[in-house]
Simulated assay, not measured.
Amino acid sequence: MKEMLLRDMVNPNYVQIVGRSEPSQVVHFRTDEEAPGGPPLHIKAIPMSSSSVRVTWKPPKKELTFGPIMGYYVGYKVKETRDDTTGSYTYKTLEAKDRSVNMEAQINGLTRATKYSITVQAFNSKGSGPASEEILVQTLEKDPPSIPNLKLSTKTANSITITWSSETKAHSDNPTGYIVYMKRSSSDKWDSFEIPGSSILIQLKP
């Protein structure tokens, strides 16, 4: 509301100030949502094996979400050459059912020792936002060793012997060594030992 002035047309030196009226009723309204206006941030991709990569990211800037984020599209395609801009992305959809959802996805079924282009988009009820800048990642030439199977072989009053074995994968070399991590149940500190074989004798302290 603005304060109004009324000037007497007969006497220009006479001014009357008109007061403010009572306010109108309050009207509540809410603007409609829009598709996200910004891309996801801090995109990273790590090769996990010869056929899979792990992609992580952070949500778009809060002021550019324009409504609750319902999920993300993670796109990937083979990168043929450095200047390649052809080919369409294959998308994997990750729904964000709540805000505690981990913003990461694992893409499987990829080709060994191949470079891929990765991009991520956020979406809400109105559609998808702009894509992030593409990042490049290459699947591994060979797979990491499989998880060893541990076994308590022997035990005495003062020592234990731990043995283990690993399954051989099709695109993985046999392990050349192992790192054994150990800690006391009452401690948070882990000790590590590099072992060339498949067993270790551990002397127990009283």
Rank of each mutant, 00 (worst) to 15 (best):
T65D: 09
T85G: 01
F66R: 14
D84M: 14
Y76H: 12
T86E: 12
V53I: 14
G67N: 10
Y73S: 10
S52Q: 03
E80I: 15
T81V: 08
D83F: 15
K58E: 10
S50D: 06
V78L: 07
T86H: 15
L64V: 00
T85S: 12
G71N: 03
G75D: 06
T65K: 09
G71M: 04
I69W: 10
P60N: 09
S49A: 02
K79R: 14
T56S: 07
V78S: 01
G67F: 05
E80G: 08
M70Q: 11
K79V: 10
T56E: 07
V53W: 05
E63V: 02
S50R: 09
S50T: 14
V53F: 05
T85I: 13
K77V: 13
Y76I: 05
T65I: 05
G67D: 07
S51E: 06
Y73K: 14
G71D: 02
K58Y: 07
L64G: 00
S52M: 07
T56G: 02
S51Q: 04
S49C: 01
S52P: 08
K62H: 01
Y73C: 04
T85F: 13
G67S: 11
S51V: 11
G71K: 03
R82T: 12
S49F: 02
R82K: 15
P59R: 04
R54H: 14
K58G: 04
D84Y: 15
P59V: 00
K61Q: 05
K58S: 09
G75E: 06
Y76D: 04
P59I: 01
D83Y: 15
T85M: 13
V55K: 03
T86M: 15
M70V: 04
K77D: 04
I69R: 10
V78K: 08
M70F: 08
V55Y: 07
K58P: 00
V74D: 07
Y76T: 07
S51H: 12
P60Y: 02
K62E: 05
K77L: 13
S49R: 00
R54C: 11
G87H: 12
K79N: 10
V74R: 09
G75T: 07
F66V: 01
W57K: 02
K61H: 03
G87W: 12
L64A: 06
D83E: 14
E63C: 02
S50G: 10
T81L: 04
S52Y: 09
T56I: 03
P59G: 01
